[in-house]
C-alpha cells in the first residue's frame, strides 16, 4: 500500500513539473522518460522473453515515419502517437515470423539487418523525404510552451505505462511463460508452453511501445532523419541501460536509464572520452555486478514471480 501511495505521489509530482519547475526541467526529463520507456521495453524482450535485439531502432523509425504520414494527412501529432504505436506493432507481426525462427546471436544480427533495410527503404522514398528527412507538420497551432508541456506529459505517460505494463505482464502468467521460454525453450515446449506465440507477443508489444517512443522523439525534435532515428546506437544504449541496471527486473531498466542519463549529462563535455567512460562503466558493472546494479544493491519495489508463503 505504501508503495502505491509513493508511486502515485511521485507520478503527480512529475506531472506537475510544467507548473512548478517549468520548461528548463521539462527538456531533460523528456529525454530521461524516453530512455526509461526504451530500456523497459528492451528488457521485456531480452530480460523476460530471452530475445536480445539489436534492431529496436527499426520500430523507433517506423513509429516516427508513421506519425509523419498521419500528421501529413491532418491528424493532430499528439493523437498520432498511439496510432504510430499500433502501426509499429502491426509491422512487427509479419516481421516476427522470419526473425523469430532465429535465436541468440543470429536473432540479434537479423534484427539489426532488418533495421538497416527499413532505413534504406526510407532513404530511397522521396515521399518520406529520402536521406534529408522530414519536418513534422501540424504542430503550428500549439504555443511552443504548451507544445513542450504536452510533449512532456506524453513522455511521462509513455514511461509510466511501459513500466506498469511490463510489470503487470511480468508478474502474471505471461511473465511465467516468457521466463520459462528464456530459460529453456525446449523444456518449456514440453511443459506445454506455446513458445513461438509467447515470443511473438513479447516482440510485437516491445515493437509497439518502441514505435510510440519513436513518434514521441519526433514530436520533441520536430525533425526526423533516417540516418539518426534508425541508428544502432539506440539499441546499444537500451542494452547498456538494461545490463547495468539489472536485466529481468522491473526496477533495473529504470535505474539503468537514470545512470545512463546522469552519465550523459555529466560527461557530455568530454567528447569521445564520454564513450570510453561509458564502456568502462559497462565493463566494471558486468564484472562486479553481473546481475546489474539494482540486482546487486536494490530490493524489489515491483516484485515479480510467485512464492509459496
Amino acid at each position: 500500500m505504501t508503495r502505491v501511495i509513493a508511486a502515485t505521489v511521485l507520478l503527480l509530482a512529475l506531472a506537475a513539473v510544467p507548473y512548478t519547475l517549468g520548461p528548463v526541467a521539462e527538456q531533460p526529463l523528456i529525454g530521461l522518460f524516453s530512455l526509461v520507456a526504451l530500456a523497459t521495453l528492451w528488457n521485456l524482450l531480452a530480460g523476460f522473453a530471452g530475445l536480445t535485439s539489436f534492431g529496436q531502432q527499426a520500430y523507433l523509425g517506423i513509429g516516427a515515419y508513421a506519425l509523419y504520414l498521419l500528421a501529413a494527412r491532418g491528424l493532430d501529432p499528439f493523437l498520432g502517437i498511439p496510432l504510430a504505436a499500433l502501426v509499429a506493432g502491426a509491422v512487427a507481426v509479419p516481421v516476427s515470423f522470419p526473425v523469430l525462427r532465429l535465436s541468440g546471436g543470429h536473432f540479434a544480427v537479423a534484427t539489426w539487418v532488418l533495421a538497416e533495410i527499413f532505413r534504406l527503404a526510407v532513404t530511397l522514398s522521396p515521399a518520406l523525404g529520402g536521406n534529408t528527412g522530414v519536418a513534422l507538420p501540424g504542430l503550428g497551432g500549439y504555443e511552443p510552451l504548451v507544445r513542450q508541456a504536452v510533449t512532456y506529459w506524453w513522455a511521462l505517460g509513455l514511461a509510466a505505462c511501459s513500466v506498469l505494463g511490463v510489470w503487470l505482464l511480468a508478474r502474471g502468467g505471461f511473465g511465467l511463460r516468457a521466463r520459462a521460454v528464456q530459460s529453456d525453450p525446449v523444456a518449456a515446449a514440453s511443459s506445454g508452453v506455446r513458445v513461438d506465440r509467447t515470443r511473438r507477443w513479447a516482440y510485437c508489444l516491445a515493437a509497439s511501445g518502441t514505435g510510440a517512443v519513436g513518434a514521441l522523439l519526433f514530436v520533441y525534435t520536430l525533425y526526423v532523419q533516417p540516418g539518426s532515428i534508425f541508428g544502432v546506437q539506440y539499441s546499444v544504449s537500451m542494452m547498456f541501460m538494461v545490463l547495468i541496471g539489472g536485466i529481468g527486473t522491473i526496477e533495473g531498466p529504470v535505474a539503468g536509464a537514470l545512470i545512463f542519463f546522469g552519465l550523459q549529462q555529466a560527461l557530455s563535455g568530454y567528447g569521445p572520452w564520454y564513450l570510453v567512460l561509458l564502456g568502462a562503466v559497462a565493463i566494471a558493472v558486468t564484472l562486479f555486478a553481473p546481475r546489474g546494479l539494482w540486482g546487486r544493491l536494490g530490493r524489489p519495489v515491483f516484485p515479480i514471480g510467485y512464492r509459496l508463503e
Binding site: G173, L176, R177, R179, A180, Q182, S183, D184, V186, A187, A188, S191, G192, V193, R194, G248, G305, Y306, R307, L308
Partner: peptide
C-alpha cells in the same frame, strides 16, 4: 529429460506453475 532441464532463474514452485498452467491448462 535424462539430464534435468529445470527453468533456471525460476523457483521450484514457478517451474511447476508453468507446467500446471500451460500443460494441464
Amino acid at each position: 529429460y535424462q539430464v534435468p532441464r529445470p527453468f533456471e532463474g525460476m523457483t521450484v514452485l514457478e517451474n511447476l506453475l508453468v507446467a500446471a498452467e500451460q500443460g494441464a491448462g
